[in-house]
């Protein structure tokens, strides 16, 4: 465990907690894409099936359980508890355009043609694009609440830190996982435009709004 990986996991956790607290405290999930959150629940579920087959550490197991629990809590809040505030009219990204290609790719490009490994690969590919419905929603409405921006920023930082983690591991452990690295790169690139807006607008105290 190096510092990049630990800070990456931490910012991932912070992102999720920010969003959970935002929804819970404001009793509203306005501006949040339920589709992205549902995709993340699928991502965690398909990736962490190794909870049943493979013990790595208490840290590893604990974080996996927390991520899964949080992702389902999020889906429950959006589609059940605070359903009335969910902005479904603006959450119109077609998720089949993400799920189908990533599923097909997971069958074609994987480390090992076994059910668990294919599901793991699928989750890596799907995670890299799962934020698109949320980014699409922001671009459609032309703005995001500041707290939603913080969430997106922390989530983007997480994968960026993982890139440094992979450089570190390659350098010092000779370890690399090409599937994770390529998908992680794609994922980070998707956040770049948002990073720019976040730094130039949100950090200067302005609400994130896109030019018309």
């Amino acid at each position: 465990m190096n510092i990049f990986r630990f800070l990456g996991d931490l910012s991932h956790l912070i992102a999720i907690v920010i969003l959970l607290l935002k929804i819970w405290k404001s009793r509203s999930c306005a501006g949040i894409s339920g589709k992205s959150q549902a995709l993340f629940a699928v991502v965690f579920t398909t990736r962490y099936l190794d909870l049943f087959t493979n013990f790595i550490s208490f840290y590893n197991t604990g974080m996996k359980v927390v991520y899964i629990a949080c992702s389902y809590a999020m889906v429950w809040m959006i589609y059940s508890k605070f359903k009335a505030t969910y902005d479904g009219n603006h959450d119109t990204f077609r998720v089949e355009f993400l799920v189908a290609p990533t599923a097909i790719l997971a069958f074609l490009v994987n480390h090992d043609f076994t059910p668990l490994e294919i599901l793991w690969t699928f989750s890596i590919y799907l995670e890299s694009v799962a934020i698109l419905p949320q980014l699409f929603m922001v671009s459609k409405t032309g703005e995001a609440e500041t707290i939603t921006s913080h969430y997106l920023f922390a989530l983007g930082v997480y994968r960026t830190l993982y890139l440094f983690n992979w450089i570190w591991r390659y350098q010092f452990e000779g370890f690399f996982d090409l599937i994770a690295i390529v998908a992680g790169l794609v994922q980070t690139i998707l956040y770049c435009d948002f990073f720019y807006l976040y730094i130039t607008k949100v950090l200067k105290g302005k609400k994130l709004s896109l030019p018309a």
Binding site: D9, F175, F176, L178, A180
Partner: peptide
């Protein structure tokens, strides 16, 4: 070690 069968990352 390409082909990490043991995924230790989150």
């Amino acid at each position: 070690e390409p082909g990490a069968s043991k995924h230790d990352e989150l």
